[in-house]
Design a protein around this nucleic acid. Structure first.
Lengths: 187, 187
DNA sequence: TTCAATGTGTTGTATATACGACATATCGAT
DNA sequence: ATCGATATGTCGTATATACAACACATTGAA
């Protein structure tokens, strides 16, 4: 809210960099992508890259966060209550994300990616929990968000381990009653 | 040759502006397109527009020149000799250009467009004539280029007036012997 | 007519980007 | 181990773009 709108040049450049990175990720492994590759593809100067990102890992992080966030926002914020439908939407968004990553080659960076997913999940869960919590106990919401993010990410890993073939909603549905019973203070 | 390569920011911005203009031309008449429309679509500042173009007519001119030039370069420079094939390529490029313009609405600017086409044609003809002329008479080449540009543009207007239905090569072929006889000094 | 709204074109200043140079690190070949 | 080639990260400076403000023209409605 306090953020004054950012310079259009910045938005433009970040978009160019991120798009180029995603483009290149489809062709090469992450470890073979150089900063020069990215900036050449994006037609921006190499020094400009460092104006926006610490290094290539920082870019990976922010690019993935953004992609995931777009997925989540498209699917989730249609319903702002954390009910059965919302859980299924979120879980499906994550499995979609996992599927899209499994095409690209990010070998050796699974941990980074896992952390990014959990962080984004935590943010979203926290927002939704605070919004619908009747008490003012934000600490509890924070911890619950952590637990939910780890738990649901874990479920997506298990889904992946089973071959990514089971429809996400079928795989996940059995656990929903348990998850809902824990958080449904209101009503 | 003497041009040192231009700043990538300039290329980027010009492309954004031109693409936005072409985009908007598909939706609105030229007279209803404002500078603000263009710069908003291109996501650049209005003042930046004036850094690159005198006004909207200047943009029209340069945008059309570029589109035409791309058409011509794609088709023409495969053969660098001004023979029957080259004439047909050029004439076809122009009729294609006329067709693409007839969809968009540039009512009231036909004269401007005509001038742009002739200017581009003249440049190309002049280059080719000088290249293949055995004598060093550049003045003659210049005048011949003028004559050819007006003549061939006129033919394309006639082709348009007849409904743009006749295949350009059929329409134009009968005149080629005459045109070739005039310029074929060499050999 | 008058007035408000909108478009045009210009100017001064702040900031993002381009560019070249540099030091350092990494890596593959000899 | 050494060397050339290539990638990383940083810096200073030049320049293109963003932005707000301005004067002026055009337009349409009261």
């Amino acid at each position: 809210m306090t953020q004054s709108k950012t310079d259009p040049r910045v938005l433009r450049t970040r978009r160019l960099i991120m798009d180029s990175f995603i483009e290149l990720s489809a062709k090469k492994e992450f470890k073979d992508i150089t900063i020069k590759d990215i900036t050449t593809e994006a037609m921006i100067n190499r020094a400009t890259f460092y104006y926006h990102f610490e290094d290539i890992y920082d870019l990976l992080e922010k690019a993935l966060s953004e992609v995931l966030l777009v997925n989540l926002n498209e699917d989730v914020y249609k319903t702002d209550k954390l009910n059965e439908e919302a859980f299924i939407r979120i879980f499906t968004a994550i499995t979609n994300f996992q599927k899209s990553l499994s095409n690209r080659c990010h070998r050796g960076y699974e941990d980074t990616i896992a952390r990014i997913i959990r962080e984004q999940l935590e943010i979203i869960f926290y927002k939704m929990l605070v919004k619908q919590s009747t008490t003012e106990d934000k600490e509890a919401s924070k911890i619950n968000a952590v637990i939910l993010s780890w738990g649901i990410y874990g479920a997506s890993v298990e889904w992946k381990r089973k071959g990514m073939t089971i429809p996400p909603e079928n795989f996940f549905k059995p656990s929903i009653p348990y998850l809902l019973s824990g958080i449904d203070y209101g009503s």
